[in-house]
Amino acid sequence: EPSQADLDALLSAVRDNRLSIEQAVTLLTPSSGGGSGGGSMDAKEILTRFKDGGLDRAAAQALLAGRTPA
């Protein structure tokens, strides 16, 4: 399960175009075949909204942490 520091680094990389959204989703869902963790939004949607400015960093982190299976 990614830590808050991992999520923060991942969000920074996506925002700075050092990591594509697809690459980030793969890192967030290493063994689930890329499927959502059952959250209301999947990781790709969360990351896309964050990059487009629709979500701030704290909200994106909380959503990603919340949808990651324990």
Rank of each mutant, 00 (worst) to 15 (best):
residue 44 K to I: 08
residue 23 Q to C: 15
residue 44 K to S: 10
residue 51 K to W: 03
residue 69 P to D: 09
residue 16 D to C: 07
residue 7 L to H: 03
residue 12 S to Q: 12
residue 3 S to N: 10
residue 45 E to I: 06
residue 41 M to N: 07
residue 34 G to T: 13
residue 55 L to W: 02
residue 52 D to H: 10
residue 11 L to G: 00
residue 54 G to E: 14
residue 37 G to Q: 10
residue 41 M to R: 06
residue 54 G to I: 12
residue 1 E to A: 11
residue 57 R to N: 06
residue 25 V to Y: 05
residue 39 G to N: 11
residue 59 A to W: 05
residue 54 G to N: 15
residue 2 P to L: 14
residue 14 V to I: 09
residue 42 D to N: 10
residue 21 I to L: 04
residue 29 T to P: 10
residue 21 I to S: 01
residue 10 L to T: 03
residue 25 V to G: 03
residue 67 R to I: 15
residue 21 I to V: 08
residue 4 Q to F: 14
residue 29 T to G: 13
residue 69 P to H: 15
residue 18 R to P: 00
residue 45 E to Q: 09
residue 50 F to S: 00
residue 45 E to V: 06
residue 63 L to E: 06
residue 13 A to I: 02
residue 10 L to I: 10
residue 4 Q to E: 15
residue 68 T to V: 08
residue 20 S to I: 02
residue 46 I to T: 03
residue 60 A to L: 03
residue 34 G to M: 12
residue 37 G to P: 13
residue 49 R to W: 04
residue 18 R to M: 10
residue 36 S to P: 12
residue 32 S to Y: 13
residue 27 L to Q: 07
residue 31 S to R: 08
residue 30 P to T: 11
residue 59 A to G: 07
residue 15 R to L: 11
residue 58 A to D: 11
residue 38 G to Q: 11
residue 33 G to H: 13
residue 35 G to I: 08
residue 22 E to G: 04
residue 23 Q to R: 07
residue 47 L to D: 01
residue 39 G to S: 13
residue 22 E to C: 08
residue 51 K to G: 02
residue 64 L to Y: 00
residue 2 P to G: 12
residue 26 T to S: 14
residue 19 L to Y: 04
residue 47 L to G: 00
residue 36 S to E: 14
residue 32 S to K: 10
residue 61 Q to E: 15
residue 21 I to D: 01
residue 51 K to L: 09
residue 44 K to W: 11
residue 37 G to S: 09
residue 55 L to N: 01
residue 35 G to N: 10
residue 11 L to F: 05
residue 40 S to V: 12
residue 52 D to M: 09
residue 52 D to L: 07
residue 6 D to S: 11
residue 10 L to F: 04
residue 50 F to N: 00
residue 44 K to D: 03
residue 52 D to N: 09
residue 7 L to C: 04
residue 13 A to N: 04
residue 48 T to N: 06
residue 15 R to A: 14
residue 41 M to C: 08
residue 20 S to K: 03
residue 5 A to N: 15
residue 59 A to C: 14
residue 6 D to T: 07
residue 22 E to K: 05
residue 27 L to C: 07
residue 55 L to E: 01
residue 57 R to D: 04
residue 2 P to K: 14
residue 61 Q to G: 08
residue 21 I to T: 02
residue 16 D to T: 06
residue 16 D to G: 05
residue 60 A to F: 02
residue 15 R to K: 13
residue 8 D to A: 06
residue 7 L to S: 02
residue 54 G to H: 13
residue 37 G to N: 14
residue 15 R to N: 07
residue 28 L to H: 02
residue 42 D to G: 07
residue 10 L to N: 01
residue 53 G to V: 01
residue 33 G to P: 11
residue 32 S to P: 10
residue 47 L to A: 02
residue 53 G to Y: 04
residue 9 A to C: 15
residue 48 T to Q: 14
residue 14 V to S: 00
residue 2 P to F: 15
residue 59 A to R: 06
residue 44 K to F: 14
residue 48 T to A: 07
residue 54 G to D: 11
residue 1 E to F: 09
residue 34 G to P: 14
residue 43 A to Q: 05
residue 62 A to F: 03
residue 69 P to M: 08
residue 40 S to H: 12
residue 24 A to E: 01
residue 33 G to C: 13
residue 43 A to D: 04
residue 67 R to L: 14
residue 67 R to Q: 15
residue 31 S to K: 11
residue 64 L to P: 01
